[in-house]
């Protein structure tokens, strides 16, 4: 699929009225804050990846739904290694109704990684007949890792569909046992399950991206 890189188009003030299409966001500075606005009838899909480089990484992204019939689909993969400290702040704001947004975040935390995921869905009083969903799954791979998730909702309109969910956990002992009983080493099992967890988003990423070249 054809994709566009956001970093080449982002203005200095960080506010961009996004034309429709498939966007990939990867090579931004360690600390970046931007607002992506979707006008009426714009349909966008974003793939974001965090954690390849840098010690302290911070992203603040506001997805503003400014027009009717807009549709946002954003998938975020956070892969923390060593002693990285990663913070994600994402806001899905619906200013107008009859639109849909869907944000899906997966993260893996190894070693002494600290990941903080703060997310908020805001549906303004005008945003009737909106659909907004948020889902967050976090996999902790080390006893020294620390993950905090704060999925928030602020709903000011009553005719809406809205839900969110967040889960934090380690590797399923049954899955681990199954693979170990087939002769796979502990280290390989961990890598395999980590890979399987991330695959859902990784497989949507362009093949020439650094995060995907390791596949």
């Amino acid at each position: 699929m054809e994709y566009k890189k956001l970093s080449t188009m982002l203005p200095a003030d960080g506010i961009l009225n996004v034309p429709g299409g498939f966007w990939f966001i990867d090579d931004l500075p360690a600390e970046a804050s931007y607002e992506l606005r979707l006008d009426a009838h714009v349909r966008c899909k974003f793939i974001l990846h965090l954690g390849l480089q840098g010690h302290r990484i911070r992203r603040r992204v506001i997805f503003s739904i400014c027009g009717e019939n807009a549709k946002l689909d954003a998938h975020v993969l956070i892969q923390g290694a060593k002693n990285q400290c990663i913070e994600w702040v994402g806001i899905q704001r619906h200013l107008i109704g009859n639109a849909e947004s869907n944000l899906f975040i997966k993260s893996t935390a190894e070693n002494a990684v600290e990941i903080s995921i703060i997310s908020k869905i805001i549906l303004d009083a005008n945003a009737t007949k909106s659909c907004a969903y948020f889902q967050n799954k976090n996999l902790i791979l080390s006893n020294r890792a620390h993950v905090t998730a704060r999925p928030e909702l602020e709903i000011f309109a009553n005719d809406v569909h809205c839900s969110h969910g967040a889960a934090i956990g380690g590797i399923d002992p049954m899955e681990e046992f199954y693979l170990r009983s087939r002769g796979i080493s502990q280290r390989a099992v961990k890598a395999l399950l980590q890979r399987a967890f991330a695959e859902e988003i990784l497989c949507q990423m362009p093949n020439d991206m650094p995060c995907n070249q390791a596949r």
């Binding site: 976090n138 902790i140 791979l141 080390s142 006893n143 020294r144 890792a145 620390h146 993950v147 905090t148 998730a149 704060r150 999925p151 969910g165 967040a166 889960a167 934090i168 956990g169 380690g170 590797i171």
Partner: peptide
Amino acid sequence: TLDVQGALSQVQH
């Protein structure tokens, strides 16, 4: 707020 340290707990919201 979900706050988990270590790989041995399961928390869902």
